[in-house]
């Protein structure tokens, strides 16, 4: 569904991604882990065009949506086309980014109504269904500021799902949460994975990666250092850098040492 070929991304002098090749298939749950600054989030942001790549190719559903060479975008797709393709990618941010001036229900319905021109009734029915699935139906008329971080993130997931995306991108979805709120968000994500959603999850939750992930990608310094089945990866990381990284993780240490 997603194919990345030799992706490079620099911010000025700083090279953040250094030649990423990646294929992601339907219903995969790919967990991207690695130290901070390794380019994990940038990779996701390049996928849905929040950042433009410096060079490389991005295919989504077999369609070339970005092609750049030496910092110049070579493929001048109209903005509308880019928006359409990006709408196939749902994104969940570390800091939720809910719209504070809209109620929970409005947050979930606004994009389908505005972008997909869905009818209000249709969008609301689906939104209520989604809010029910993330367990927040009773909060539909609240403003986001009245919700806990975990609840806000679950609304953000519902909001992304409302666009009926084929792929969900999660950018450290639990990193801004209090520890006791992490579980409820991971639970929703797990359910989503079980329903067959294709997911790319940048995370520090090794337990989630091991249990729910179908593949783990370990990134360091802008490169994919290692990728494997989660069970194998966490039990027997092959590279020294992955071993060193897992060694610093509390709770993982006991199994890797």
């Amino acid at each position: 569904m997603i194919k990345l070929k030799n992706i490079y991304k620099s911010f000025g002098q700083l090279e953040v991604l250094k030649g990423i090749d990646l294929d992601i298939h339907k219903s995969e749950v790919v967990c991207v882990i690695g130290p901070s600054g390794s380019g994990k989030s940038t990779l996701l942001r390049c996928l849905n065009q929040l950042e433009r790549i410096t060079s490389g190719d991005i295919y989504i559903n077999g369609e070339l949506i970005d092609h750049a060479e030496e910092g110049k975008n070579q493929l001048h797709l109209p903005q509308k086309k880019i928006s359409e393709v990006c709408a196939e990618l749902g994104m969940v941010f570390q800091r939720f980014n809910l719209f504070p001036h809209m109620t929970v229900l409005e947050n979930v319905t606004c994009a389908p109504v505005m972008v997909k021109k869905e009818g209000k009734k249709e969008a609301e029915d689906y939104a209520l269904d989604l809010l029910d699935r993330v367990g927040l139906l009773d909060k539909k008329d609240e403003y986001p500021s009245r919700l806990s971080g975990g609840q806000q993130q679950r609304v953000a997931i519902a909001r992304a799902l409302a666009m009926r995306p084929q792929i969900m991108l999660f950018d450290e979805p639990t990193s801004a949460l209090d520890p006791e709120l992490v579980g409820e968000v991971l639970e929703v994500m797990k359910k989503l994975a079980e329903e067959g959603m294709t997911m790319i999850v940048v995370t520090h939750e090794m337990g989630f990666a091991e249990e729910v992930g179908t593949r783990v990608i370990f990134m360091d310094e802008g490169k994919i250092v290692e990728q494997d089945d989660p069970k194998k990866f966490f039990a027997h990381p092959k590279t020294e850098r992955a071993k060193a990284f897992l060694g610093k993780m509390p709770g993982v240490y006991s199994r890797t040492s």
Binding site: L50, C86, A87, N97, A111, M114, K116, M163
Partner: peptide, 10 residues
């Protein structure tokens, strides 16, 4: 960013 990720125009 969230708006763009949801497919909204500028």
């Amino acid at each position: 960013e969230a708006s763009k990720a949801l497919g909204m125009s500028y």
